[in-house]
Design a protein around this nucleic acid. Structure first.
Lengths: 197, 197, 197, 197
DNA sequence: CGATAAGCGAGACGGTACGTCAAGTCTTTTT
DNA sequence: AAAAAGACTTGACGTACCGTCTCGCTTATCG
């Protein structure tokens, strides 16, 4: 192959076949779809391979376990992206954040994926690590918003911010895992009320 | 036939060999021990059968799945019993309850069993039902205490009691499932602070 | 223990409830029925207990295995009794005997029971012993008839009587075990022809 | 490859890992060994898997039941191949064939395998089919030899060839199944004598 | 007649093997 | 090198039947 007109020069001249991006997308999308479709029983790696029309070998070449696929899918599809606004109104920012977190627990695919991730985390250190990446990141965002909120007197200064973050995130996880439907923004606002002053 | 009170009725109060209570206890105890010992990976029904020196057939005769064993073990061993005091001091009662719930999340066997139960509940309707029995019961107790606390002005009247209960229980579940250690009564007291007034 | 001076004394010739003859008949009859009904797969002791409305305990109290039940059933129901005539005509006697043996292989219950017996005999010494009781007895009868037939010049004198008996019995067993239907007395007569002179 | 006549055809003659021939041989050999070693009780698929150092999954992937393994082993190892000579002497050919059949019933592995096959055939349609493949093939060979023998006046013309074949094969099966030892070629020759003229 | 002892149904029990399933690895061929 | 296809080991699954063992009758015989 002469490859005459390729301006973007590839540094490695000897690097074999390149990764199939389509297959990657099929796997990530398939994982989310399967998670939602098989919500009551979970899905297997074999099902995922079949759904994505990908060999098991390819699956395991790029991801070590189901949780890793789920984690990457959630990131890739921006399903766990929550608003982290930074307006002048610290109270409104915190409210928007909490609402965003609670709304996400509604989205079928994200909800199903998160539930599987949490389930796997209980019996697999690898899954626990994958889950931890989420929770830590989200907790940091929450703490930052709480910090600003405290500076502006939105939340009381004497309370432990870590506990407040756990209250915000723990309550939504609990509802998610026990399959309680959360309708509207009412619960999110109620939580904020409890933490305010 | 004399048997005046029950004409034509065959009493037959017993039939066949009676259930082996020792085996039952061995299974329930073994499940809790194994849950704690294999916390990072979970245990199988075969492991449990071997540990309890019981045949798989006997295991499945009485329990349909791991979750059912765990649920019964938690009840049998009173590991989920929390204080539900009813003194004159509604605030003290609520505090004692919350502390009790959080302390329980410390006990290695109860904690491990609850984590497995929650994990199974995500992929098995049967496990979800077994888990629900706990959460519903505990939530009811919590709501009753919150109700009294509200009457005595310990917690604000305007807030949704359901959300408050979810905050109390959700936060401890979240810490339990993400394997964060909770030391002392500080978190419990902090939660109560947030809900008070 | 006092019983000092009673060597070889039978303390109690009989005590306790006597055996239930009805149950015994139900088992023997049920075994033959089941053998015929489940000819293509065989039946289990549990099926037999259910069919005879008898407990497994009772089954195993009187018979050690399926083959023993079958053997007793065949004897009890006289299903393996073949004509052993002793008329003046040695040739007619032998013919009648062979026809009787071949006809028996037609009777559904006897045929099914014999096939199971032979199958069990291949993997169980106990069953092999039970089967041997039949084959030996039948072979003896056959040899006696052959001996008289030889004396009367019906069959040649130079041939080994043991082999002739095996030819007569082996051929019918072979047809039975390979599920080939044997219709009428033709095969029996053909066998006799081959052995005659 | 030019592949001129098949436009647009996906050749794809092979894909994926090829079957492990060593494992196959280990299974077939192990089956025969086990059959001979455990002649009095039979062997299980689990024993065979262990003996052949092969997983149960692989066993069941290629063979549906024990009988299928045995049948293939007998064919593969040529243990059921009998001489089918076609010399000028039709009598000698028939004699050689019968002797060959009877000698085979001596070989410990073949004998044990055939006994298990016959036993399974009584309680499993699949095994019956596997057995039938043997018996039919062998019967055809026998009938062909008998036909030639009849043409040359070795056996009488008036007799049913099917019955003669059953006599030859049935007698050896009967001796095999009732575990009677057959020594030397005497029985084979005796059978031939009975059928001759 | 009451004690003794065996028979009996029901069914729990420890075992062994069953045949299946998913996990994760490895090999072959094609791209 | 990556990929699809698929064979492979491992180990757990949940079930079936085995043969044994209570359990609480019932029923016959004998002291």
């Amino acid at each position: 192959m002469t490859d005459t007109g390729e301006p973007g020069r590839k540094a490695r001249p000897h690097a074999g076949r390149s990764r199939n991006e389509q297959a990657r997308q099929d796997v990530l999308g398939g994982a989310l779809e399967l998670a939602a479709e098989t919500a009551s029983r979970g899905f297997t790696m074999e099902e995922l391979a079949a759904r994505a029309a990908v060999s098991k070998r390819t699956l395991y070449r790029w991801w070590s376990c189901r949780s890793e696929v789920l984690a990457e899918a959630l990131v890739e599809r921006a399903l766990t992206v929550v608003d982290t606004p930074a307006s002048d109104d610290a109270a409104a920012d915190l409210r928007a954040y909490i609402r965003s977190v609670y709304r996400q627990a509604h989205a079928p695919q994200a909800a199903a994926a998160l539930r599987l991730l949490m389930a796997d985390a209980q019996t697999s250190p690898a899954a626990a690590a994958a889950l931890r990446a989420f929770t830590d990141h989200r907790r940091d965002t929450c703490l930052a918003l709480l910090s600003r909120a405290r500076e502006h007197g939105v939340v009381p200064a004497g309370r432990d911010p870590g506990v407040m973050a756990d209250v915000i995130l723990g309550t939504v996880w609990y509802r998610l895992l026990t399959a309680d439907p959360i309708t509207g923004d009412t619960v999110a606002d109620e939580i904020l009320h409890l933490l305010s002053r």
